[in-house]
Design a protein around this nucleic acid. Structure first.
Lengths: 154, 154
DNA sequence: CCACATTGGTTGCCATGTCAACAGTCGGTG
DNA sequence: CACCGACTGTTGACATGGCAACCAATGTGG
């Protein structure tokens, strides 16, 4: 007996997933770049620094990494690029002399405030428009389940 | 009146999508790399060249690009890398002297035949295990709809 | 038949991501 | 206190992807 392959339905769903993944990422980056000059990675960092539970717009490098599930080197380089563009500022940590704070600058805040409405609108119009509550719930359930399996196998 | 944001449910679903996207991609690449030394991009190319409608394991460069929805430069570079590893071979096209065929080599066929079972098993176990037919159908419907919207807005 | 747009493919430059190595710091334990 | 392992962050080497410029070949309208 041979390998168990995917059913026809699964095959289509999986291909659809992969294609959607690629197309949506491309679209997000293109839109963000065009409307605000930000990459999706820039946007993700700015979202964290303007989150409700970050009232002062400041996080430690490692906190950014934990929140975004990014490698520390990725955070470091991303912050460096954004710092060079004036969106962020590094600040030494007095308590732990290894550490660095990342502060949102006025320019950074302006950038995400300018980018967010169009980005959110795009997500709503492309991703959620026409989706029933049941579909959204099903998607949520699927992602939670798959993420749990991914985490379990690590 | 302000911007229309996402509902709580949509917010969670969207964050879940983004995280799933990141985690699943990482997992796929790690697994493929570990079990067969292939990247997901390698695998995608090999899948096309071993597709049922490609009986001779040969495609033109541009056909690979169309099937995968990849930029031509991406195809070119990917093929170069795989050619250097002996998984593929380029062959000049007699009919159109600009063109190149890409031929699957024996090593390339062996590589995907060795990689596919574990990869498919992982997809089944992580992505589809525990999913009802309704969930798979809902996912398929969602991807089709979003892809249509993405295509429409281009 | 010729001028010109189009197509197929490659290349260079830049941005980004991973991994591994490193440097400095902290903290707990003997 | 001294040591050693864990933690924080940076860097360099390398792989990859997008974009634009480019070359060569094709085909098409006049």
């Amino acid at each position: 007996m041979g390998t168990t392959w995917l059913t026809e339905e699964q095959q289509r769903a999986w291909q659809g997933w992969l294609e959607l993944h690629a197309q949506l990422t491309a679209r997000i980056n293109r839109d963000l770049q065009a409307t605000s000059g930000l990459s999706h990675a820039d946007y993700a960092i700015l979202v964290q620094l303007t989150a409700e539970d970050v009232p002062d717009g400041t996080l430690r490098m490692f906190e950014l990494g934990e929140r975004l599930l990014w490698e520390k080197s990725r955070v470091s380089k991303q912050v460096s690029r954004m710092e060079a563009r004036g969106l962020l500022a590094r600040r030494d940590c007095a308590d732990d002399r290894r550490g660095s704070f990342v502060d949102l600058t006025a320019a950074g805040r302006a950038a995400i405030e300018s980018a967010a409405p169009a980005h959110v609108a795009m997500v709503r119009e492309v991703f959620f428009a026409g989706a029933s509550d049941e579909e959204v719930a099903a998607l949520g359930a699927l992602t939670d389940r798959v993420l749990a399996r991914l985490a379990a196998a690590d």
